[in-house]
Nucleic acid binder design. Structure first.
Lengths: 210, 210
DNA sequence: TAGATTGTTAATCGATTAACAATC
DNA sequence: TAGATTGTTAATCGATTAACAATC
C-alpha cells in the first residue's frame, strides 16, 4: 500500500466499481478477471492489476477476483461505506440539476441547498428547502455535511467556499470557473464545462486539418 | 508548432483565455506578463510560456504580451472564431441545465434538443423544441451541428452516439457513465459527476488519516 | 547600455506499459 | 502436474519544472 496514488488510479477505481455493478446486474458470474474488467473499461488488463496493487492483493493467481469481494474492497478503498451528506450552493440550472441527479444516486444525499436570491430563498426543491447563503456556515456545520457542490457565478465562488470551509466541509465539487483557495485538509474537484467545450472545438479543428 | 500537444496544455489555454477576459473587464492594462497570468491561474510562469510556445511566439522579450493580441491568438488556436452549433440529447436534469447554461455563454449555441420520452417530445425549452431522438441523424446533419451533449441514461448512450456520428457530429460532451466507441475523427470528453464525487470521498478519507 | 521578460533547453518527475516470475 | 492469471518489476513514455540564453 504505497503512499502516493495517481489520481487517474482513483478515478479508474470508480470506473471499476461501476463496471462490477453492471456485471452483477447482468448475472456475469462470481469470478471476475482483470482481462474482462479491462475490456469493459476500454483499457488494458495490466492497468487494472497495477491499480489494484496499490491497495493490496485482492485476487487469486490463476483464477481471478471474487466479484462481490472486489466490489466491497473498492467501496472501502474509496470510502463509500456510508451515505455522504452533500450541500448544494447555488440553485440555478446546474445546482438544480445536481440536486435532482443526486436524489437518484445512492451513496450521496443532498441535505441542504443555498442561494442568495430572495426570490428563491424559502422555496423548495423536492424535499429540500432553499436556505439563505449567509447561513452556509452554521447550517453546514450543524448537519455535519462533508461535501459541497458549488454552482454559483465565478465571482461569488471564493466567498461561498470560505463559508463552507468554516462549516467544516472537506470536499468541494466546483462548477465555477475560478481556481479556489482552500486549506490543505480540503479537496476541490473542478468541473469546467466551458473548458471541456473549448477543448472539443480545439480537437475538432485539429483533426479536420490532419 | 509541435504535433502532439498535451491535453493539459489545451485545457490551460482555455483558462488563460478566461483570465484574460477577466483582466479586460478589470481594466488591467494592455501589457500582460506570463508572471501575472500564471498568478491568476495559480500555476507557475514557465508553464504559461511553455504552453504558448507549442503554438508559436506571441510575446516580446523583456516586455510581455499584448493582452488583446494574445486573447485573439488563443481564440484562434482553440478554434473559437465562430459560434459553434450544439445539440443536446436527453432533456433530464442535466440536459436542461446545459441548455440553460449554454444560452448564457457566447461562442456556443444550442440548435436542437432530443429526448425519447413522448411526454417531452414537442414541448419547448426556451426557444428550442424537443425533437424525437429517433430523428437525431437527419436533424443534426441538416443543422450542421458539430458538437453534441449526451445526457441520457448510460445504457442508451452508445445508441445515441451512433446516431450523432451518422449525423456528422465531431465532438461529444458525454455525461453518461460509459466509455463511448466513436470513429477516429470524433472526440469525446467525459464529465463523470459520480466519479468526481467518489474521488472526493477518497481524498477526504485519506486526508483524515494523515 | 542595463534591466527585464520571453522562448527553449535539459533535468526531473511520475505514470503507463509490457513482460514475467510467482503461485493457485 | 499443467494451465492460467495474478502481482510486480523494469523500461518506456510523456509532462512538468527550473534555469538560462536570447533579445527587446
Amino acid at each position: 500500500m504505497k503512499d502516493l496514488i495517481p489520481e487517474a488510479t482513483v478515478r479508474r477505481l470508480s470506473h471499476y466499481l461501476r463496471c462490477i455493478e453492471m456485471m452483477e446486474k447482468c448475472c456475469y458470474g462470481e469470478n471476475l478477471q482483470s482481462k474482462d474488467l479491462a475490456r469493459m473499461c476500454s483499457i488494458s488488463d495490466s492497468v487494472v492489476r497495477r491499480d489494484l496493487s496499490y491497495f493490496g492483493t485482492f485476487g487469486i493467481k490463476g483464477v481471478g477476483y471474487d466479484l462481490k469481494r472486489l466490489k466491497d474492497s473498492i467501496k472501502r478503498i474509496l470510502g463509500l461505506t456510508e451515505k455522504k451528506k452533500v450541500v448544494v450552493v447555488g440553485v440555478g440550472n446546474i445546482g438544480r440539476a445536481l440536486i435532482g441527479y443526486l436524489s437518484r444516486v445512492d451513496g450521496f444525499e443532498v441535505v441542504a441547498a443555498f442561494d442568495n436570491d430572495p426570490q428563491k430563498i424559502g422555496k423548495k426543491i423536492g424535499k429540500i428547502k432553499i436556505e439563505d447563503a449567509v447561513n452556509i456556515t452554521p447550517i453546514t456545520a450543524n448537519l455535519n455535511a462533508e461535501i459541497a457542490v458549488v454552482a454559483v457565478p465565478s465571482d461569488e465562488a471564493q466567498k461561498v467556499v470560505n463559508r463552507l470551509v468554516k462549516g467544516r466541509v472537506k470536499g468541494i465539487l466546483n462548477f465555477a470557473l475560478v481556481p479556489l483557495k482552500v486549506p490543505d485538509d480540503v479537496t476541490v474537484r473542478y468541473i469546467e464545462l466551458l473548458t471541456e467545450l473549448e477543448v472539443l472545438t480545439y480537437n475538432i479543428k485539429k483533426r479536420r486539418k490532419s
